[in-house]
Design a protein around this nucleic acid. Structure first.
Length: 344
DNA sequence: TATATTGTTACACC
DNA sequence: TGGTGTAACAATAT
């Protein structure tokens, strides 16, 4: 009887059902939540259980690269005593900033030893998730809950077999990083190295920024006249943060099929796509924020998030607008869904 | 066994 | 040569 009530308040879950891949709105939600929850918390210790998921320095990320145990130790050591300052998002990448640790030279603190502050870059890829566990909940329950999978078997003790990195805070609260597929990564860099991080350099513009104008959109798109519009929207170098789900939804609302070639799209149609990039993502950022909250309160009820989707994941079902059957195509190795009547 | 997924890379083709 | 597409890869639950 007491348990659902407990879960409804102190337990902050920041994750998504495994087939709702985190894209810009989901990562934005995670960033905002974590920013609020982690601000000024000091790390007591870090445990890395899956060395392949972490890396040090701005090097190119590779899932295959073996990380030596010394690097794991260094990763854990560098993060110890760090204080979370902020969590931000760039494309689908989470950027954690830590405050500069006060390190003094041996001569009685007269001279500060120069040391760059640290940033942690985290990509959730498909199934990465952060779960923050407050002190209050932990003192009130024996077990901890990990809603990592589906409604039929939602509860697992934390840490579970998919927990790969654990952040223990001074006040007893804990942040878990889980990833079923292990495609995600945590990359620790010094702030003076951050400009060398390749993925950050190569990201296209943020679609929700004021700087992302119709002009920028048109210029970028028209550079590749022979590509399909869908492949342009999901290309992080063209525009940041859009994946399979939102590209499908944007194209539905713009009324264009994903297979259309850029060359054969009119300026008016491109304008509709641009408008809907802003519209769909803005709506999703708002919706994700609230639906995640609902999800936590209902404990195991995963619904809510898909209710705004018109085409994604609805192949074979009726179009919500015209009742035609939603079709799908394979494009660049990904499934694209569209309504054959609403989208031309 | 086939499928789903992201982002990167290797390679074929025009 | 470079623009473009295709396939493979990482991992694992369904």
């Amino acid at each position: 009887m007491a348990q659902p009530k407990l879960l409804s308040f102190d337990f902050c879950v920041l994750n998504f059902k495994f087939y709702y891949m985190p894209e810009l709105p989901e990562v934005e939600t995670v960033a905002r939540e974590l920013n609020r929850k982690l601000k000024k918390r000091k790390i007591k210790s870090v445990e890395v259980k899956a060395p392949k998921m972490i890396s040090l320095g701005p090097d190119v990320v590779s899932n295959i690269r073996k990380v030596k145990s010394s690097q794991v130790q260094k990763f854990e050591r560098l993060l110890r005593n760090q204080i979370f300052e902020s969590v931000k998002r760039r494309a689908k990448l989470l950027i954690f900033n830590f405050s500069r640790p006060r390190v003094f030279s041996p001569n009685f603190g007269k001279r500060k030893k120069e040391r760059a502050s640290l940033s942690l870059l985290v990509h959730l890829k498909m199934t990465g998730q952060f779960i923050f566990e407050d002190t209050k909940l932990r003192s009130q329950t024996h077990g901890r809950y990990c809603l990592i999978n589906k409604a039929s078997a939602p509860k697992e003790l934390l840490p579970c077999r998919h927990t790969h990195v654990i952040f223990n805070f001074m006040d007893g609260s804990i942040l878990y990083f889980n990833d079923v597929r292990k495609f995600g990564y945590l990359k620790l860099v010094r702030d003076n190295e951050i400009s060398q991080v390749r993925e950050l350099r190569e990201f296209g513009p943020e679609p929700l920024s004021k700087q992302y104008t119709i002009g920028r959109f048109l210029t970028a798109v028209k550079k590749c006249p022979k590509r399909t519009i869908k492949s342009m929207l999901v290309d992080p170098k063209v525009v940041a943060g859009i994946g399979n789900i939102y590209s499908d939804e944007i194209l539905f609302h713009a009324g264009l099929r994903p297979t259309r070639k850029v060359l054969k799209i009119s300026n008016q149609e491109l304008g509709r796509i641009y408008i809907n990039i802003k519209k769909v993502l803005t709506k999703a950022v708002k919706a994700k924020g609230s639906s995640v909250g609902d999800f936590v309160r209902t404990d195991g009820s995963w619904g809510q998030m898909g209710k705004y989707h018109f085409v994604y994941g609805r192949s074979g079902q009726k179009c919500k607008r015209c009742a035609s059957i939603i079709s799908s195509v394979k494009l660049n190795g990904r499934t694209g869904s569209f309504c054959p009547k609403c989208q031309k």
